[in-house]
Simulated assay, not measured.
Amino acid sequence: MKNSILWDCHMHSSFSADSDTDMENMIKGAISRGLEGVCFTEHLDPDYPPTPDQQIFHLDLDAYARRLSFLREKYKDSIMINFGIEYGLQPHLKENLKNHLKLYPFDFVIGSSHVIHGSDPYYGEYFKGREESQGYMEYFESILENLDVFSEMDVYGHIDYIVRYGPNKNLYYSYERYQDILDEILRTLVRKNIGIELNTGGYHYGLGEPNPCTAVIRRYRELGGEIITVGADAHSPEKISFAFDKAAKVLSDCGFRYYTVFKNRKPEFIRLS
């Protein structure tokens, strides 16, 4: 199937602590790939634990909003640019994030699990003293803990993010192995009218699958899920719209005839051509 997905709705620039790419270079990269639109979803991860590489997760939201507004106007005849945020969810942050949402006119809000009980699996320390399967299960349990107290996001980001960093990645991981808890997550999302994303980061992490994997996306659709955005989780221009041809086929194979883009926090459904 040709690439019929023309919006990348999950990307970062140097406003996120884990990217050093200027926002304008990301926009130019998206234009060069023929995209109709992008949504920047810079990281906001309050109470992020100290990291081995001394990474400081800070986001200057005022500067981010000003720069995006300027570039949106500058490139208005070439590409649409939406204003998003990716919240790093933790249960104790619920009031902080709810109040934060009132301050900025976001188009799109991703809620993601990065930190699980004080540790990010991106760093290998998370798996010390844990079986891989135990670490995966604790991660999925943390998603339910977040959903129990916070429902204000538009989609839940890269639901099986942890698989990118497991000791064996997805060698022993499958939807079927964790079906009970994954089904509980998906049913909760459907009930709360929260979507999911097809995050192609899994492909450039060598999983051969998106995040979440195809079987989870298919199950979400079977359970009545309708809202699904697509993003490459790009932190540099060469990853923009990465493997979107594969993403289009996954969506089609899972029963979707469209993907979703959010504007002013409202979903717009775009048909796959």
Rank of each mutant, 00 (worst) to 15 (best):
L207H: 00
T200F: 07
S16W: 02
E197L: 06
S273T: 00
G135Y: 03
G224A: 09
K2Y: 03
G37D: 12
Y172H: 10
D18I: 09
V109E: 02
D77N: 12
Y203Q: 08
G111S: 04
V190E: 12
N96T: 03
Y220T: 05
R191S: 10
D154K: 07
N199C: 07
Q179P: 11
A234D: 14
M137R: 09
E226S: 11
Y87D: 01
S112T: 12
H117M: 14
K2W: 11
M23K: 10
L103Y: 04
Y104D: 10
Y173K: 12
A232L: 09
A30E: 14
I227S: 12
K98T: 04
V190G: 10
I31S: 08
L223W: 02
D233S: 03
S252C: 05
A234M: 00
E138C: 06
N199P: 02
I85S: 01
R221H: 13
F83L: 12
K266H: 04
D245P: 00
W7I: 03
R265A: 09
P49C: 09
K263L: 11
G34Q: 12
E184W: 01
H58Y: 13
S151N: 15
G225E: 04
E141Q: 14
S13F: 06
D18N: 12
F150Y: 11
L182Y: 02
R177T: 14
I227W: 06
D47K: 13
P105H: 09
Y175W: 01
V38C: 02
F140I: 15
G202E: 01
Y172V: 03
Q55Y: 06
V230Y: 05
H58C: 01
C213Q: 06
E36Q: 14
F256I: 06
D8A: 13
G201V: 08
V109R: 00
S69R: 15
D47V: 02
E125W: 08
A248N: 11
L59Y: 10
L6F: 13
G208H: 13
V38P: 07
D20F: 08
D180F: 06
R72V: 02
Y104N: 03
L189Q: 05
E73V: 10
F269D: 13
F242P: 00
H114L: 01
F15S: 05
L6I: 15
Y64N: 11
I196F: 11
G124H: 15
R271M: 11
K239I: 10
P210R: 09
M26Y: 10
L61H: 05
V109S: 01
F70N: 07
L97K: 10
Q55V: 12
R130V: 01
V155L: 04
D120C: 09
E238H: 13
D107S: 05
R164I: 02
K128A: 03
G111K: 13
L97A: 07
Y136E: 07
D245N: 12
A232M: 05
A65D: 05
E131Y: 05
E138W: 02
I110S: 00
L103Q: 11
E145N: 15
R66F: 08
T214L: 00
M23H: 10
F57K: 14
I116F: 13
T214H: 08
V190P: 15
F15V: 14
